[in-house]
Design a protein around this nucleic acid. Structure first.
Lengths: 138, 138
DNA sequence: CTTCATTTTTGAAATCATTGCAAATATATA
DNA sequence: TATATATTTGCAATGATTTCAAAAATGAAG
């Protein structure tokens, strides 16, 4: 697992001052495998930090996304969630239970897209939706 | 171009009664290459239909999406838009001008995803973001 | 250490796309 | 024609996200 010091270094390299709130939020999103929403991050850290504002969480997550440190998922159209996993992967969302899971890719999917000459690509997301094995059984 | 009669037939086959509003909305989304939002559909059809409610547009688009007749895009996190193009394709959204364009795929991208045994897939979207050639020039 | 400027955080109010709801209208069936 | 059902409508409510201006924290300069 990546250390707190390394995470701090990463923020500094991105030109972002590692305030207490920023480092805590960065650490939380990077270490979570749950694709947390801003609200979830807020609930998880408010006690640990003594105080925290939901606005700070929103601002900070946006800062990280713009810096390319984390990515924002819009697979569920009713809220945004965030992903600190830097490896290339796809996402599946179950229409029944709402759970979002990571799925590995055999190869990079951008290479399959035609006509990208002249485009600058900064983000790519592959979203699958349907019913998960667990919900299919019921 | 697909005829109005064929579109009507398609609604009936999907078990959806082709009311005046439904057929007009279906026709508009199917023939548009612009990925319209509910608001855009509403503005475009209210005069043509004499009267139309935004709520009807939302309800009807949801009806079509649930029936698998059109798809909903969440590539822009601030609004939903709709796509009547049934061919497998990816989408690119320019971070500067906001334009959303279709991109052809060399092959179906679902085949690249690992670990889908036991999952039922009902929808797949590949979203790319960045800067389009036109905005890159400026 | 103190002062001043800049950056960051905060909370409350505002925004706005979308949904809920119950009444009105249209359509199908008998 | 009467009755039941399906559809549409407009307005109010919802809720995630943003705005904004003040408060707090941090950094630089003397």
């Amino acid at each position: 697992m990546v250390s707190r010091a390394e995470l701090k270094e990463e923020l500094i390299n991105a030109g972002i001052r590692p305030s207490v709130q920023r480092l805590a939020i960065f650490e939380y999103v990077r270490r979570s495998c749950q694709h947390p929403t801003a609200e979830v991050v807020y609930e998880a850290l408010r006690d640990e930090l003594g105080s925290l504002s939901l606005t700070t969480v929103y601002n900070t997550l946006k800062l990280f996304v713009d810096a390319g440190l984390i990515s924002m998922l819009t697979i569920d159209d009713t809220f945004r969630c965030f992903d600190g996993n830097r490896c290339c992967h796809a996402h599946f969302r179950c229409n029944i239970c709402g759970k979002i899971v990571d799925l590995q890719m055999k190869k990079d999917f951008i290479s399959l897209v035609e006509g990208l000459d002249g485009y600058e690509i900064t983000d790519a997301q592959l979203y699958l939706k349907g019913v998960c094995p667990s919900c299919l059984k019921k």
